[in-house]
Design a protein around this nucleic acid. Sequence first.
RNA 1: GGUCCCAUCGUCUAAUGGUUAGGACAUCACCCUUUCACGGUGGUAAUAUGGGUUCGAAUCCCGUUGGGAUCACCA
Length: 440
Amino acid sequence: MSAIKVRFAPSPTGYMHIGNTRTAIFNWLLARKNGGHFMLRIDDTDKERSKPEYEKAIRESLEWLGLNWDSEAKQSKRFERYEEVTKKLIEDGRIYPCYETAEELDMMRKKLMTKGLPPIYDRSALKLSAEQIEIYEKEGRKPHYRFKLNDGDIVWQDMIRGECKYEAKNLSDPVIIRADGSYLYHLPSVIDDSDFGITHIVRGEDHVTNTAAQIQMFEAIGGKVPTFAHLPLLTGQEGKLSKRLGSIGVLDLKERGIEPMAISSYLAKLGTSEGILPFYDLQSLAMTLDFHKIGRAQPKFSEEELAHFSTHLVRNMPFAAIKDRVDLEEKFWETIKGNLDIVSDCQQWVDICCKEVKPVIENADLCKKAADLLPQEPWNDDTFAQWTSEIKAQTGTKGKELFHPLRLAITAKDAGPELKTLLPLIGYERVYKRLNGIVA
RNA sequence: GGUCCCAUCGUCUAAUGGUUAGGACAUCACCCUUUCACGGUGGUAAUAUGGGUUCGAAUCCCGUUGGGAUCACCA
């Protein structure tokens, strides 16, 4: 069996969001699990809506997530190839010109719908006489082109949905070239997948009927039909969350401090029979990929749950997974990680240990007494317990009454890592001063 | 409306026709920590609905209801 080659083919008409990202992740995972090839293809056939800034943002998003690609292509640079194929398909009678305007087509669809009929194109363009075509041309009408679907069943084995079957008569002949001569998504995508030797296409369920049409296109151009996998679409509070309605941008999540591995772990496992557990590198996540474990129902995506999961991931993150991103000692990371919501919060603990802090004095007498009893360094593991026992013995305060004022004075916060481990990181001088209400 | 897909705890799901319907996340309780957080241990909680097949149905069949996709000169 030849090596697996997959592609992620975003159109640069918007930012990368959850729906997109999920597709990218599954493709990447499939490639990496099998030592295959992951290609980035920019589907920029829509000149109106494609923007360089979106393309840039998509690349940035992929890089941030760690979804590296082995090669790339851009559809806007391949028009010559598309024309070559199109010419041949016109000769073969698989592509035919149509002269209806967008308004006329819209009207026809509405008419059929109100009659309770499926809004399928009636192929009237195929019945046009030469004279009629001439009249249209003289009117200045420019044709758009459709791909003619052959009658019969279209069947494929889907890695997620099992056997899929569509009758061609239930599908409209897809428009593949606009009246202005530009290409629509369908055919270029098939030509590219064929030319680049894509073996597996993993995409959202919104593409299933496209797949039916595209299988005939693969056959028409003499290409090998790839293996398909259609992921159930994610839903959210606001209903659907397809790539066009996607509201949650990856870069926004980054901005909020959501961990990239939280996004990957969450999206790769949501809707599968496996638990959503933190993974700290993509390769080990890839090794767990199993299409049989993906359900067919539409899972609900919750941004809140993702944020929660990300926090969980941070609090359990091994030092090895973070050491290249922060300038911290392992001991320090292990001490504070259980109190972080997002990684960048660790700076505030660095500051508390190494910079001036304005203490919050809740009980001045107690803190003063505690300062007086604070033993000189060096401190060992028992120092903290001995010190607090002594304070308790001399003042009679204990439990929350004792620890809350100490914590507030020393860290200016009412929650945080164990004081026992935090104290040595701050040091005698700062602790002593802060207990006395002095900024230190 | 046509075509296609889906329906089990709050959420994601497991259960070759026979299970006390299991797990994970969330939640709650308790424990640990002489505070908070982290962590640990337990508990609550589900087969949409009506028929049928069967000794026996979450599971198979039909209907109903509900959800989603698609039917673009978007991708």
